[in-house]
Structure formats: structure tokens, C-alpha cells
Amino acid sequence: MKFVFDLDGTICFKGQPLSKGITNALEACIENGHEIIFASARPIRDLLPVLPETMRKFPMVGGNGAFVAQNGETVEVTAFTGEIVEAIQNIMLAFQLPYLVDGDWDYAYTGSEAHPIHQNLDPLKLAKNVSLHELKDIVKIVLFPGEQHKEILAELQQLPISLYEHSAENIVDMSPNGIDKWNGLMKLGVAEGGFIAFGNDANDASMFVKAKESICVGEHKVRELASLQVPSDEVAVIDMLNTLNEKYK
């Protein structure tokens, strides 16, 4: 069986690397013949540092589906069209919004250094923080709307893009139209009903509805689409993972 894992808030917490307990549970799955896939909102660049070195060549979906990687190589990147980038930039300019914009590797960041996103941004210093106009292909955009959240969201919802709200962090996360985690998983050859998904947020919905079993970690509304739910607690996640590991071996 294929096991697909979101990272932040699902199997890694507070931006820290996978714990020994989680790592051991994943290794037990591998020993039972299961395949491990990671599917995160993070671009591949920022996904790698939280994983043990032994798992950095596993199949991965990054940027909510915009990046697909196998065997340590990024095999596909889906970028916004120039027209959509211009429309989003006009909104950014009109509202004077801080942002994190990811290219295929480098990025442009103008947000606060105190924001949790900055703390998780390129910790291995693998890329460069460049000006926005230096990014050739724009793959993922995060905006920090502040108190203008509703007005900005209303503008963005008029565009043909994949859009996710993360109210706890007060950010809006955007990917190219039609791009989501399930889209990325299909590019890795994952079949509907042929995998188990662990996640904790709205961007996990697309894979929850296609999974054989889906496990929501915590109390997010996306639990309504999940077949199982566990508290946002590492021990609970490990217990569930061990149970499913044995059930499907």
C-alpha cells in the first residue's frame, strides 16, 4: 500500500524535523513493503530539510502539487501563466501586500522575519532570496493579507487559480489552476483508492476524497472528508500509523 503524508501539523510539528518516533513508524511501514510518499504545501527545497537523509529521495509532491519529485530529482514543475501572475501582482500592489513567491528553486520574500513561514524558509540555504522580477517561472504564491483579508480574498477568488486559506497563520496560498495534491500524486502513478492519506488542512481535501482511507490530524474542517480522525498529537499519529501498517501489510 502507498502511504501519503502531509508534513506540517501532520507528521512534523512546529516546523521541526520528523521526530525519531515518527521516523521509526515510517521505517516500519517500509519494512512491511509499503511505499512512502510526501505531499506538502512546501516546495521541494523546503520539504527536504525536515526529512531524514534516508528519505530525501522518496517520491514527493511539493507546492500543493506544483512540484513533483522522484529519486531526488524534480521531474515536473507547473508554473502560473504570465497573465495570472500579472493579475495577482496587481492585487499585491493595490493592497501593498507582503509575499512569498516561489520560482522553480529561488524565491522572493518580503514578509516579516517573525512569521512562522520565514522560520521554515530555506533553512539549508539551498536557494537565493531574489527580487520578484528575477523569478522567471512563478510556481507558488503566498500572500499575507493582514486586516484586509476579506477584501483581498474576494479579489483573488475571481481568478482561475487554486486557492487555500490558512486562517491560523493569516495567509492565502495560491497554486496554478487545477493544481492540487491529488494532481501531483497522479503524476507519480498513484491510483484512486490505492493509497492511504494523512493530512490536516484544506489543501489535503483533494487527496482525502481519492484515498482508500484518509486520516485527519486535528480538528480542521477537512475532517468531514476523512474516514478517520486523530488528535493533533504525535503519539496518536504514531498509533494510527502503526495500526494501518499492520492492517494493510
Rank of each mutant, 00 (worst) to 15 (best):
M92E: 13
V101C: 10
M207L: 10
A127Y: 04
R45E: 08
F80Q: 03
Q148V: 04
V130F: 10
G62F: 05
S167V: 12
S232R: 11
N64H: 09
V77I: 13
D102S: 06
L47A: 14
I22S: 10
G184F: 03
H220Y: 12
M92G: 10
S19V: 01
N177T: 09
E155Q: 10
V75Y: 04
I152M: 07
V77K: 03
V61L: 08
G15C: 14
F195S: 02
F3I: 01
D122Y: 04
G15W: 13
K181P: 04
Q16C: 07
I138H: 00
C216M: 13
M60E: 10
E224Q: 15
N177D: 15
P98I: 00
P59T: 06
G184M: 05
G9E: 12
K181E: 06
T78W: 07
G111C: 06
F144W: 01
T10S: 14
I30K: 14
N32E: 14
A154N: 14
L156R: 02
N200C: 08
G15S: 12
P49T: 05
K210C: 08
V68I: 15
L132Q: 13
L97K: 02
D180P: 00
M186S: 14
Y248Q: 03
K140L: 09
A202E: 13
M55D: 12
P116H: 00
F198H: 03
P160R: 07
V209Y: 00
R42D: 05
A25E: 05
V77N: 06
V142Y: 01
H34A: 04
D8V: 06
N64Y: 00
S167H: 14
K221D: 15
P160C: 08
L185W: 12
G103P: 07
L241Q: 12
Y107C: 03
L225Y: 13
A41W: 04
I161L: 15
G33Q: 05
W182D: 06
K20N: 13
M207V: 07
F67P: 03
A66D: 09
A211Q: 06
A154D: 15
D180V: 06
L26E: 13
D180L: 04
N203F: 02
T23R: 04
I91G: 00
F67N: 08
Q229A: 12
N71L: 05
G63Y: 01
I44C: 04
E147V: 10
G72N: 08
D6T: 02
Q158A: 06
A211I: 07
